[in-house]
Design a protein around this nucleic acid. Sequence first.
DNA 1: GCTCGCGGTCGACAATGTCGAACCTGATCG
DNA 2: CGATCAGGTTCGACATTGTCGACCGCGAGC
Lengths: 254, 254
Amino acid sequence: MPGPIQSIERAAAMLRLLARGSGHHGLAEISASLGLPKGTAHGILRTLQRVEFVEQDQTTGRYRLGAALLHLGTSYLDANELRSRSINWADTLAARSGQEVRIGMHLDGAVLVVHHVFRPDDTMQTLGIGAMLPLHATALGKVLLAYDADLSATTRRRELTSLTRRTIVTPAALERVLVQVRTRGWASEAEEFMPGEASIAAPIRVPGGLVVGAIGISGAVDRICDSASRPKPALVEDVSFAADAVSRALTTGS
Amino acid sequence: MPGPIQSIERAAAMLRLLARGSGHHGLAEISASLGLPKGTAHGILRTLQRVEFVEQDQTTGRYRLGAALLHLGTSYLDANELRSRSINWADTLAARSGQEVRIGMHLDGAVLVVHHVFRPDDTMQTLGIGAMLPLHATALGKVLLAYDADLSATTRRRELTSLTRRTIVTPAALERVLVQVRTRGWASEAEEFMPGEASIAAPIRVPGGLVVGAIGISGAVDRICDSASRPKPALVEDVSFAADAVSRALTTGS
DNA sequence: GCTCGCGGTCGACAATGTCGAACCTGATCG
DNA sequence: CGATCAGGTTCGACATTGTCGACCGCGAGC
């Protein structure tokens, strides 16, 4: 593959860098992180600023992401077929299960949340769309890992960061779980991501069988799991049903 | 200003182009729109694809925005001070007024919605964050225009697109309204953007007086306006109060 | 089966972005 | 109060880098 454009890749790397830490970053920090001379980094930043992908704090001189990205991000959502076709089923699942619903897909070694429905009775809403969740500690992530051999391999090669006492941290244990996910057709997790929280998820497939995303519910452990701390079969059924419904919705239509 | 990086500007233009029409665009269409040779456009697109800013439909070969942009967009929101400092006051305003609340700022000749609170009693509403609204037909936009001379001048020079029978379409009429906004300190609009809908907005300022955004409510005409089809004074008061509160919140703190 | 339109490829050319040293400004500190 | 430092910014020579347009291969439609 000839000629990936250097400056654009560098610009993208900068935006990614600025997205991490969600704070303000200085030029020196940026140029050091990417191993670029200050002058070069400055030129790229100034260009990104011109197109409003980046803003600069007038007083401190530090850089942060720009407003144009917000619009691009939501434009992506509008065009995203997985999301648009799954919204109705996500609502249905939320109503049926009484739990919060998320739809995720793989992005860059994590789960990108492309849709989020709050728990029906809950008002306090932290909007989760656009958030990135760990692959190895969420039900959504396990589903994505289970059906993507490459992704699974690279993930196990990397450090499995421990988020709670229950997080799976050894590659072997993760692989064992993924085998189970594949045979069952769904994944679950209890307090591996956040204490007191559990989740269940199932794969969304395009015609041909390729898994392109996952849909799942999450909530307090005692809502998701039965007394033996295993996922309640009725909820598993709901999630699987919704996943199949979305997959079918992706099959039909343009 | 020396050396805005050509390829990055072109890449940004492509992303903007893809964001419009929220559909799939072909290579030929893109290269024609930007006046670039196909080969060049292709190189840029392939690079954007590598960094997941762009995706390509496997079957049709057409291009669309990529998932990475969603994450960047929400990261922008996290870092946005205007938004984070105004969330609480937006909730308060929604509760007080009983109406839907939006916070907007200027982006690229339009109003970018950076925060959105649904009407308290209403559940089914479409999420408006990241949306772009016209400057001349919304209360939020009028506020931004009123306090930005440059923006106001360029906007009046462009076509004022008519959205309803009531939309202001002549530069002179718009200027008259903006003068009024400046003297009153708030703006309103009734059925100029959408039939049956009205809105009220007031400016958010940073220390020094510069207007950086606007906060406003919107809803059915009969909720916003009194029988003389003028904005209800109580609501105007609520909005102004909230705007001042947010401005103060921006002053204090880091 | 020919042609058109589409996305994709290739290689020569020089315009383009890169680089590093030097500059400026404001804050910090002896 | 001057020196020093750390930040962002500017500049110009160099050659790397992206650009360009002609050329493929393929599928759809006449």
